[in-house]
Write a protein that binds this DNA or RNA. Structure first.
Length: 345
DNA sequence: AAAACTATCAACCGCTCCGGG
DNA sequence: ACCCGGAGCGGTTGATAGTTT
């Protein structure tokens, strides 16, 4: 939190040197917002709606930069904001989405109505990250058993609590499926190079730093294995940049606090014989929604078969919803990018 | 009771992206 | 093509509240 009553010539707000009536640059307030300031901004926004934030700051009679007004509105004053602690379901979802999106807080926030990216970021950095740090020794043990899923379960259990419905006896199973679902969404084999997290991977599957890209799990195997254990899914690991039918040794990467842990290698055999259009209805237990994955194969420009997955519904959160997270067109993104269910702390 | 420590979270900072001139 | 300003994002800071010693 910041001290109220701070005044400073604009710095860092490149877009919002507040200009007074005489065209003179005004000093703008910094620090905590007073109730009066909140009221001014709230009233102005409700009357006039969105516009240029610099103008809003000026017209609302605030000695704040537009950037500060925007932040205050988005993070605190917006009428549709939820208050209070994250529900277990929200926590679950945050962890879930982070495994797919990484630190794209705004994208994650877009999937949690009434929550802000700042809120989620704070939650992650304080609660989840810290928890992981505490359990670092456990992490290495878990990783040696090749079970990211177990780790996820551990983390979730730590955060959400044993007694929670989501962590009930059926939960591990479900989480595994969700993890698998996430990864499957990203599964594609496209060109000789692919992009992950803004890194380019060469023909050998290494990025410019010599790292292998994250792994991708195959939804079909996840489904058929019933999510019984993560280990069972190792045979379905895919790595972008390789063709089907390849047998690869893939080091498993798992990052915690910048540590990369390399558990035993896993082999992967992808059969070409599942070149059929298949539809998977994964009916969850109880009233958990259903998601659908349509698998089919298209022939790529290089003649190799490209596995295509169309996902309708996402995890257990948005049944029937098209695959779109926030403003990020994942369908387009996934057409070119591979990802994994990994924790990226 | 007080000091030390820890957790939380509002807000700032610096950066990138994008559109308009 | 370049510059500029606005918008938005992710990382970080630091005040304060809560907890432990």
């Amino acid at each position: 939190m910041r001290k109220p009553e701070q005044f400073e010539k604009e710095k860092g707000c490149n877009n919002n040197v507040n200009v007074g009536k005489q065209g003179m640059a005004m000093k703008t307030r910094k620090g905590l917002w007073s109730p009066e300031e909140d009221e001014k901004l709230m009233n102005y926004m409700l009357r006039n709606g969105h516009g240029c934030w610099t103008d809003i700051a000026r017209n609302a009679g605030l000695q704040r930069c537009g950037k500060s007004c925007r932040l205050r509105w988005i993070n605190y004053l917006r009428p549709d904001l939820k208050r209070g602690a994250f529900s277990p379901q929200e926590q679950e979802l945050i962890i879930h989405l982070h495994s797919v999106l990484g630190n794209r807080w705004s994208q994650i926030a877009a999937r949690l109505p009434g929550r802000t990216d700042n809120e989620i970021k704070n939650f992650w950095n304080s609660t989840v990250k810290k928890r992981l740090k505490t359990n670092k020794s456990d992490v290495s043990i878990v990783s040696q058993s090749d079970s990211i899923g177990d780790l996820l379960v551990d983390v979730r259990r730590d955060i959400i609590g044993e007694s929670n419905m989501f962590m009930s006896s059926t939960c591990d199973h479900e989480i595994m499926n969700n993890v698998c679902m996430d990864s499957s969404l990203t599964s594609s084999t496209t060109t000789s190079s692919s992009v992950h997290n803004n890194l380019m991977y060469n023909m050998n599957g290494h990025d410019q730093f010599g790292h292998l890209p994250p792994l991708v799990l195959d939804q079909a195997n996840c489904y058929t294995n019933g999510g019984s254990s993560f280990l069972n899914m190792s045979s379905s690991l895919e790595q972008s940049g390789y063709g089907y039918g390849d047998v690869l040794e893939v080091p498993y990467m798992f990052g915690v606090e910048n540590d990369i842990i390399n558990p035993p290698l896993s082999n992967r055999v992808i059969e070409k014989n599942d070149n059929v259009n298949a539809s998977f209805d994964h009916h969850q237990l109880d009233n958990k929604p259903t998601y659908h994955v349509n698998h089919h194969f298209n022939e790529g420009s290089d003649g190799n078969m490209i596995k295509m997955e169309e996902v309708v519904g996402f995890g257990n959160h948005w049944p029937g919803e098209s695959l779109r997270i926030g403003e990020w067109d994942l369908e387009g993104f996934f057409a070119n990018v591979s990802s994994i269910p990994y924790l990226d702390f």
